[in-house]
Every structure is written in structure tokens, then in C-alpha cells.
Design a protein around this nucleic acid. Structure first.
Lengths: 333, 333
DNA sequence: ATGAAAGCGCTAACAA
DNA sequence: TTGTTAGCGCTTTCAT
């Protein structure tokens, strides 16, 4: 069995409270400090955080629930958050719920049972019902990428309508009128926002919106491949594509590459996220990039503030902007 | 405060032991079962796994320590493992140690303090010293991608020498003699193995090994960009490149794309991992792919077996093979 | 089938 | 500064 605080107490002849005090940065006589450190060394003692968590009602663990781990947008954010949280002594348990509401709820319940101190969620269920337990327990909730009006929580969002608007503006300025939109499911907030940005930009330019040019995929590579193939088959008049996340950008590129459709001569393309991928393509892809680092740091900061005291202040809503990285994948008509 | 088992006991008039028994699948009189379920519903009771863990000395949590979360090879494996482990009631705490030995040790210590039931590690420190606590505690250790002779543990490996051999065989068969190798740091096991495979293949074909054509990067995109630029500048005689992981493949493609070096006319390329990326490029890239799903399932299976009883049997070593996905990025000289 | 009670390893009063 | 002790929420004998 692993050594306990009691073993250290016996070994040193001190009381358990003294050992506990030492472990928590309390004052201990120099001589005793040495004795304790020796005993800890000899017995390979490591605090049992399970016991500590039971007693203090704080686990120093944050739950993170995301739709998909195999998604560079998510992993970049997670990596960034982890870095910040770890430095403050917090660990994260990441659960990927496969964009499934049921799994999402299970993940949140699971994390609640583990008594994580707070939860960070890029939600699939837009009602937020799965988060009610955390709300009732008065544990901080930070939401990424959408608003949850029913839930008392902070949110960090990207201006997705503007993001799509920027892409469309480039295409329209270059004379494109038949623009295919590769977007996510209608019930996903970010996808809907991007679709709205697409429509608004067209309307503003006086170009009629043809709903047949809007392909609703499922935010995955595979889905986009199927969707783009269908779009190209049925609408040869399309001169440009805008793919509204990274995975679908890749899906679109796969179809164009495999069909030998040259960019930008035969098709103009604007993608999303992942600068490295855009650079690796030839010609370089023009993309809209999301500020993953800023998102990560905002989310982590807010969570830390909520954990270390500020429980009452009103829910916050942080909006961040995307940027355009210009390549050579758009042809001037 | 959250409801406890005691609250349920009071509410139902039963004893805590009965509630506990119910929660753990014990037999309870039908009438009491109903009462308990009603109380659980009304009080929003959720078992406190922290308390349970303290008592049972099992947390149903597995620690996972990897060098980098922003690495598709790692995330694919993690996703696969999580799926399997979750179905058996185990959660995972993933720590990314940024390919840093010190952070790796801290992550492992942290997980030990959290009393995870077992640990899965793609190790940075080749001595395995950081894992000794788990070894002493007799908690299962499963290693991915290298052997740790000093540590009592199971390992799941890929035949990396063979992987590099396959790539080289293709290039050599197509008449290439000046082949650049973009590989990882010499002290990383997989990188070394891939380098050895490169050298062996050249020697076997009677082609002298020129160490100047071997670029040791750090397994990152950025590192590979710098490395490939230098290689191309200093060795214009190179006709083919083999990049020995996905990130470095992308780095190589970035340089080639930005310099306008056409593939395969001016340069032949074989990459590593990420089939989607290979397909998205035009012409399609020939790559060596690792069996991430098989790795994930082997690792998870072994961990589960060790957790559910089989503590004694000898350490296992599972070897898996890579595959070639043929594209059009290799020119016949 | 159910309940009483001990105890997992720790922290936090409180007392000394 | 140090020690004694109660108790966090649960499981687990051992009775009943």
C-alpha cells in the first residue's frame, strides 16, 4: 500500500496535523521539516488527492466536454487552456462526446460525479439542460462557441457571421455570383451563424440566394466529400466554394484534387482554420482563421476567476474576431 | 450542498447501507427500490465518486501522458482508447507534456496523486524512471511506441524500421539515389528506428548513406520547414524526400509549395500518416500510415485486462505493421 | 433484505 | 508550533 500521512507521522514522531500543515505550506520547525522531508523521501509518499478532495470538497480538476477530439479547432483550444490551468494547479478531464447529445449529457453527469470544480463546454445540446446540475451546485460553467440563455454561465464566442461575411466579400469582390457554401448542420449554432453571414453578404451585394448551393454537411471530412461531390454534379455553374470549418475545407480539397479541378482556374476556394494546411497546398489557400489561442486564454482566465472567488458577478460574453489569411485560391472573374 | 447517500436514507427511512447496496446493484425489496429511486430523483442525487474512490481505492480513471495533443497520431489513438475505456466505465485524464521530460514526470506524479488506476504513456524519458511509482504501487502501465526495459509494463509498438524501409524501397525502385530523410530527434525511439530503416534500405541497395541528407528536426511542422529549407539549399542534388511523421510531412509540403517546386516532376515525396491530408494534395501524396485504431484498441484491451484481474502474467509486447497508401508523388527516374 | 458501525486519508477546528 | 479529534461520503463486514 501507498504511504499515508499517518505513516509519515509515525516515522517522524509528529502528529498528522503537523504533516498536513507542512504539506499545505504551514510553518514547521526547521528540524521537523527535515525529518518530514526525509520520511516523505524514504516512504515515497505522495498526497492522496482523492482523500483531500473528499475533505475539502475541491478536486482541482476541471471538466472539458467537446464535440470531437479529432478536430484541430478543439485540440488547439484544449492545449492552450490546459497550459494555463495546469500552471495554476488545475487538471482537466477531457471528454469527447462525438457530437451526440446523449453522450454529452453522460459526460457531464460523469464529471459531476467526479466532482470536478467547474466545467468548460462546447455544447451540442442547445438547451443547456445537461448543465443544470452544475448550475444548481453553483459550480462555474464556461461555454465556448455559443450562448446558452437558459443557463447561468459565461461564454466565449467567435463572430461567425462576420467570419462568413469576410469570405463572401472576397469572393463577391472578385466577381463570383454562384458561390457554394459548405456548412454544418442547421442545429449547430456556429454553422447557422456562418450560413446567415453567407446569406447576408449575398443579399447585400444584390445576388439572389440559391438554397441549392448551400450544402449542410456534418462538420466532418467524410460528410463534406459527399456533399461537395453532389454539389458539383448538380450545379456545374458554381465558380467558388466557401467551406465553413477546417474538416470540410479538407473534404472539399479532396474532391477537387481527385477530380482534377484546378484551383483557382476552374474553381475558387476559401477555407477555414488551420494555417499550416492552407500553406501546404499549392496554390496556397485563402482561409478564415479563428483565434484559438485567444479563445483558450479567455476561457481559462474566466474559469480561474470564477474558481478563485468571483462567484457572483454577472455572466460575461466575450466576442472574438476571425482573420483572413490570403492565398492564391481565388480567381478574379 | 449536493445530496448524499445519507439524505436518501433519511428521506426513505432506510439505512445508508441499503442505499449503497442499491447503488451497487444489490438486491432491494421492490417497494424500497421505488422509494429510493423517487428520492434520488427528487434530491438530484449523484454518487460522489471521490468518496467512493477513497473507500474502494479505485478511481475508475486512467491517466494518459503523451508528448503532444496537437498531433493527429496522438489524438486518433486517444479518441479510440477513450471510446473503449468509457464503455467499460473508465474515464481518462489526458496530459500533454510538450515533449518535455520534466513536464512528463510532473504529469505522472500528478496522476499518481489523483490515484488513477493505471497509466498509458507514450514516453519522452526513455529510462522510464518517471513511472517507478506506478510500478511500485503495482498499478498497470501500458507504453505506446517504445520499449522501457527497466520498467515492468506492457508495450504496443509499430514496426518503424520496416515503415521507413517500405518508403525507401519505393523510392529506390524508382531510381532515386539522393534521398533526403526528414526525421525526429535522435533520442526519440521512433525517430531513431525510422532512421535505421532508412539507412538499412540504402545499404541493402548498395547506395552510400550520406549523413548530410538526414535532417533531424523535432517532429513539428515549424522544425521541418526550417530543416527542409536548409536541406534544399545545401543539397540541390536531392531528388526525393521522405518525411517520417505527419507534422514534418506537412512542413516539407509547405516548403515545396512556397518555393513552387513541383511534385513529382522536380521532387518526389513520401510522407507519413494522415490519409486525408494525402488525398487533399494534388497530386495525391504517397504515404506510410500507422494503424492508429489497432494501436488504440490493443492498448485499451491490455489495460482493461490488467485492471480486471490479470496482474501477474508476463509483460507483453505487441508489434503492429504500417501500410503504404500509394499516390502520385513519386517520379520514375 | 436491512441496519449499525468502522474506517478509507485527509483537513480543520480547537486545545495545549 | 504541535497534537487530538471529528468528519467529508462512501463501502463493507457483521449482525439482525
Amino acid at each position: 500500500m501507498a504511504a499515508t500521512i499517518k505513516d509519515i507521522a509515525n516515522r517522524t514522531g509528529l502528529g498528522v496535523a503537523t504533516i498536513s500543515s507542512y504539506l499545505n505550506g504551514g510553518n514547521v520547525r526547521e528540524k521537523n521539516r527535515e525529518k518530514i522531508e526525509l520520511a516523505i523521501e524514504e516512504l515515497h509518499f505522495e498526497v492522496n488527492e482523492v482523500a483531500r478532495g473528499l475533505k475539502t470538497n475541491r478536486t482541482h480538476t476541471i471538466g472539458v466536454v467537446i464535440p470531437e477530439l479529432n478536430n484541430i479547432f478543439c485540440t488547439e483550444i484544449i492545449t492552450g487552456m490546459e497550459d494555463i490551468l495546469r500552471k495554476k494547479g488545475y487538471a482537466t478531464i477531457v471528454c469527447d462526446c462525438r457530437t451526440d447529445k446523449k453522450l454529452e449529457r453522460e459526460a457531464v453527469d460523469f464529471l459531476y460525479r467526479k466532482r470536478v470544480d467547474g466545467i468548460i463546454n462546447m455544447p451540442v445540446d442547445s438547451t443547456g439542460a445537461h448543465l443544470e446540475k452544475f448550475e444548481k451546485a453553483n459550480k462555474p460553467i464556461v461555454i465556448i462557441d455559443r450562448k446558452l440563455p437558459q443557463i447561468y454561465c459565461d461564454s466565449v464566442l467567435v463572430d461567425n457571421r462576420d467570419a462568413a461575411g469576410k469570405a463572401m466579400e472576397i469572393l463577391i469582390k472578385n466577381g463570383h455570383k454562384k458561390i457554394g457554401l459548405i456548412t454544418g448542420p442547421e442545429d449547430i449554432y456556429t454553422a447557422k451563424e456562418r450560413s446567415l453571414g453567407y446569406e447576408a453578404a449575398l443579399s447585400k451585394a444584390g445576388i439572389p440566394v440559391d438554397p441549392n448551393l448551400v450544402v449542410h454537411c456534418d462538420y466532418t471530412i467524410r460528410g463534406a466529400v459527399a456533399g461537395v461531390e453532389k454539389l458539383l454534379d448538380e450545379h456545374p455553374e458554381v465558380t467558388a466554394l466557401f467551406a465553413a470549418n477546417y474538416e470540410m475545407t479538407m473534404g472539399a480539397m479532396i474532391v477537387l484534387s481527385e477530380r482534377g479541378i484546378s484551383i483557382p482556374q476552374k474553381m475558387s476556394v476559401i477555407g477555414f482554420d488551420n494555417q499550416e494546411f492552407a500553406r501546404a497546398l499549392h496554390p496556397k489557400l485563402t482561409i478564415i482563421t479563428q483565434p484559438t489561442e485567444a479563445i483558450a486564454s479567455q476561457v481559462a482566465q474566466i474559469m480561474l476567476e470564477r474558481l478563485e472567488g468571483d462567484k457572483q458577478s454577472l455572466p460575461r460574453e466575450i466576442y472574438l474576431k476571425t482573420e483572413v489569411m490570403t492565398g492564391k485560391s481565388v480567381k478574379h472573374m
